[in-house]
């Protein structure tokens, strides 16, 4: 059997599989939110999803457009204030995984969501840090999902909004009370993990029908591949069905509103 699927679907399904039932996940908006809810609706029904708007253990029926849509609050176990969210729940050590997207990522998994170019005279001004700088250091580990392109995967980010492993791969060394940082990066082409020693991102698995050349072409540095390079399992019929239904519900919900 061979199912038709897009590279975006492959990315969401793979990102969803990274989450397990026992995790408490602080969810970023966009791709991470799609993946996290797909996990909840498939193999991880009890995964705890938390959004920075203060909604704890939320179970939205459609994907929120913003991190504070009413749907998140109404389907949550409870809703706390934003200071409580960041101080007690995140900084207090209750989050096992932070799930983030980004505009730029570099070889040490540093994330840039601040700007392209020079800070005082930006070529492109991006939204900024939001919750990410502290999610990345106070969650026990971090998953990142982002589309793979040369514009996004750069050797060195223009600005470190959110630390992965720093400019030299050593930013977390000897820092007390800090999480492990990024443990996996999932793109529409492959999955990457930091090298245990150098912390440089290494491709560990290619998605079906993706070649090494595709990844090299879409990466702004001399990307390395694991010796035991795997092929990511293709999406199952169930995963695709649930993902497509979720996206269809979401689309009709957000366009139909007045």
């Amino acid at each position: 059997m061979s199912l038709e699927f897009t590279s975006s679907e492959m990315m969401s399904v793979t990102a969803a599989r990274a989450l397990t039932n026992d995790m408490t996940c602080f969810v970023g908006i966009g791709l991470p939110s799609e993946a996290a809810n797909l996990a909840r609706l498939t193999h991880a029904p009890d995964v705890t999803l938390i959004y920075e708007s203060g909604t704890l253990q939320t179970k939205p029926d459609v994907l929120p457009l913003s991190i504070g849509d009413g749907e998140l609050c109404e389907s949550a176990l409870t809703t706390v204030s934003v200071p409580e969210m960041f101080r007690y729940w995140l900084q207090g050590g209750h989050i096992s995984v932070g799930f983030l997207g980004t505009a730029q990522i570099d070889r040490f998994a540093n994330l840039n969501t601040t700007l392209i170019g020079d800070y005082r005279e930006p070529k492109v001004r991006l939204p900024g840090g939001g919750g990410a700088p502290e999610i990345a250091t106070n969650a026990k580990e971090v998953f990142i999902t982002v589309k793979h392109s040369r514009r996004t995967f750069v050797k060195d980010v223009d600005f470190v909004t959110t630390v992965g492993f720093g400019r030299d791969g050593k930013a977390r060394d000897n820092v007390p009370n800090i999480g492990r940082g990024p443990t996996v990066v999932i793109t529409d082409l492959c999955s990457l993990k930091p090298d245990p020693e150098t912390k440089e991102l290494v491709v560990i698995s290619l998605h079906p029908n993706v070649t090494r050349e595709d990844v090299i072409e879409a990466t702004g540095w001399d990307i390395r591949f694991a010796d035991q390079l795997e092929t990511t399992p293709a999406p199952t019929a169930e995963e695709l069905e649930v993902l497509r239904a979720l996206k269809a519900r979401t689309h009709s919900h957000h366009s139909g509103q007045q």
């Binding site: 840090g129 700088p133 502290e134 959110t162 977390r172 800090i178």
Partner: peptide, 13 residues
């Protein structure tokens, strides 16, 4: 006071 901004460039700007 917070456990924040570790490794970020934000304090530079």
């Amino acid at each position: 006071v917070l456990r924040g901004y570790v490794g970020s460039d934000l304090p530079k700007v």
